[in-house]
Computed example of a mutant assay.
Amino acid sequence: MTKDNKPNSIDALTGKPMPKPIPASTLVIFRDQPGRTAPDLLMVERSAKMAFAAGAAVFPGGRVDDADYDFARTLGHQDVEEFGARIAAIRESIEETGIAVAVEGDLAARRIAEARDALHDGTILSEICGQFDWALQLDKLVPFTRWCPPFAEKRVFDTRFYMVSHDDHDAEATVDETENYNLFWSSAQGVLDKAEAGDVKIIFPTKRNLERLAQFGSYAEAAEHSGLHPVTMVSPTIEKRDDGVHLCIPEGIGYPITSEPMDAVQRGFSK
């Protein structure tokens, strides 16, 4: 973790300079389940052909585009990096899952499908919002965490994670058939159990985040917890211990498990 909330500039393994990280944004979409002890989260499984986190189950998200920053400026936000990332999280959710969150306006399935098709065709979100009379409710996104790897992977992302509640159980999530080949709703513990059984693959940051999210019985609990743990940059470190080499994250920032043996780690550090 860096004190100035910026990514590391030196590779933790090789000591060589790190490439400039790509800004990215990820959205943890909650759907509370009445009568159950844990909410469902929306997960997408990435295509095995992807260069980054191939075949892994992750939260919806992707890189922040220049148009996202431009949209944030147009909306009058001073912290363009923060609100550009929130806009990207909403956009990526529509593109990858067909679910529109933190959007006010006509959200009929037909309209969302039109927006999704337009995004895939290259139309920017600000134009779509203007055409459809949509207003983004960016304050509904709760900052959760921020991760950047200390290793020079094929893709190095500086990823901001947000949480949002979406209790429209009739809204159908569907794969985009480009980056992702499957998606599913599950509790955080359910995803961990699937990974333990070998039914899905999860990378190190996703596993740590799922363990943290598995502590909560509702979206409100998770949001309250996040308010008690301000976002800091998580950049894992390598520690040699008596039982071998471990990949570790800092204590005291909300994670119940903060290390894992390196030989068990699934690499790839974006979502």
Score class of each variant (00 low, 15 high):
111 R>Q: 05
214 A>V: 11
101 V>E: 02
55 G>N: 11
206 T>V: 15
30 F>W: 11
220 A>R: 11
192 L>N: 02
154 K>N: 08
129 C>L: 05
232 T>K: 12
252 G>C: 06
223 A>L: 10
7 P>G: 08
189 Q>Y: 11
180 N>Y: 00
116 R>M: 02
195 A>H: 03
130 G>P: 02
164 V>F: 03
93 S>Y: 06
4 D>T: 09
137 Q>E: 15
269 F>Y: 15
155 R>V: 07
107 L>Y: 02
1 M>L: 05
143 P>I: 10
202 I>Q: 02
148 C>T: 07
57 A>P: 08
217 G>E: 11
178 T>G: 00
136 L>S: 09
62 G>W: 04
175 V>Y: 00
30 F>Y: 15
172 E>D: 06
228 L>T: 13
270 S>E: 11
142 V>Q: 03
79 D>Y: 08
85 A>T: 10
218 S>E: 15
20 K>E: 07
195 A>G: 03
115 A>I: 01
234 V>I: 15
100 A>M: 01
20 K>H: 02
115 A>H: 01
201 K>V: 14
184 F>W: 01
48 A>S: 14
94 I>A: 07
179 E>A: 02
215 Q>P: 04
172 E>N: 10
229 H>A: 09
65 D>Q: 15
254 G>W: 13
195 A>P: 04
117 D>C: 04
171 A>W: 02
199 D>Q: 10
146 R>W: 08
108 A>D: 11
151 F>W: 13
220 A>W: 13
179 E>K: 03
235 S>Q: 14
200 V>C: 10
144 F>G: 00
90 I>H: 12
119 L>Q: 04
59 F>N: 07
2 T>K: 03
185 W>K: 10
41 L>F: 09
147 W>R: 06
256 P>I: 14
56 A>I: 03
247 L>H: 03
189 Q>V: 11
126 S>M: 15
205 P>F: 07
21 P>H: 10
192 L>I: 14
23 P>Y: 13
120 H>P: 01
185 W>Q: 09
133 D>N: 14
215 Q>C: 05
85 A>N: 04
161 F>E: 00
246 H>Q: 02
56 A>V: 08
50 M>Q: 15
112 I>Y: 04
231 V>A: 12
11 D>N: 15
109 A>I: 07
37 T>L: 14
162 Y>E: 00
143 P>F: 10
22 I>E: 10
191 V>D: 09
70 D>C: 12
219 Y>N: 04
166 H>L: 00
153 E>P: 05
228 L>I: 12
126 S>V: 14
253 I>A: 06
84 G>E: 12
222 A>L: 10
82 E>Q: 13
145 T>Y: 08
214 A>K: 13
95 E>Q: 13
194 K>E: 14
256 P>N: 13
54 A>N: 14
187 S>Y: 05
215 Q>V: 11
164 V>N: 01
191 V>K: 06
75 L>N: 12
52 F>P: 08
36 R>A: 12
